[in-house]
Write a protein that binds this DNA or RNA. Structure first.
Lengths: 139, 139
DNA sequence: ATTCATATTTGTAATGGTTACAAAATTAAA
DNA sequence: TTTAATTTTGTAACCATTACAAATATGAAT
């Protein structure tokens, strides 16, 4: 029952007018699930769209996030990353190689105390450590 | 069985030479559990230490974090916050008033998959939403 | 098509948190 | 008291991000 993802449709459903740049940026984000930065998106898409501006990438990704089409991943100390995956998952950053991995966690069993009568909109679980490859390499 | 916290002792135990500035900064962080920014620490301590430099605050907090005396809280989009609390807890940011709240969660209930043979050093659970006060005010 | 209003994109300049760096000050040892 | 090592300080640089206004593209009405 999976539907082939259609960029224009997704944007329209989110209330975003599907311009050429927006379609290309959205397609890039949902096809490259490596948590790219603005700079990465800009560099890669510039080859295809020579007139593309960094500002457009910044604004567009912020717009997508506001409309809940994508998620921002604030795991780096200096720059933001973006994630086009829809399902709930956490992010692991290897402090040796810097790579960011996805992992699953059991959100439903997680119980909070101290947030009574708070509205919870967005949960982020982030872990830092050493990935398997780096652990083996340095042992 | 609680021990009165002694800044110099804590620093020495962490392998940090307890200079005047370091003691003052450490004391501020463990006494002001409101997730202060570098700027906040600098502004408040400047009154007591007129010669204090922002760079010293930056370097010292980074040093404390590296020695695992305090934790950095990367929940803002632009600037870092610091947390002197020792016990495991999560951070909630109200997107209306901007305040950051602590909450407790059962760490043992958090089960991960996809991180086999990874070394997990630091876990951060962050939630964004609307705090009780702002929810009531806007209803 | 043409005009006009609106939305989007672009490029440059500014912003602001953080870091690099070297000089000054402090501390510790000999 | 000298000397070396450490810490602090202040300024300049860095760089991701945002502000802003001009340029371009889009869409509707005539």
């Amino acid at each position: 029952m999976n539907k082939i993802q259609n960029a224009s449709e997704d944007l329209l459903n989110a209330g975003i007018k599907p311009s050429y740049q927006r379609i290309k940026i959205y397609e890039f984000i949902i096809k490259n699930l490596t948590h790219p930065t603005v700079e990465t998106v800009y560099k890669k898409l510039s080859k295809e769209i020579p007139t593309l501006s960094r500002t457009t990438v910044y604004n567009t990704l912020k717009l997508f996030e506001k409309k809940e089409l994508i998620r921002s991943v604030n795991i780096e100390e200096n720059e933001m990353r973006y994630d086009g995956q829809k399902h709930i998952h956490g992010h692991f950053k290897c402090t040796v190689c810097g790579e960011i991995f996805d992992f699953n966690y059991n959100y439903n069993d997680l119980e909070f105390s101290g947030l009574d009568d708070f509205v919870l909109n967005q949960t982020d679980v982030m872990i830092k450590g050493i990935c398997k490859k780096c652990r083996i390499k340095n042992s």
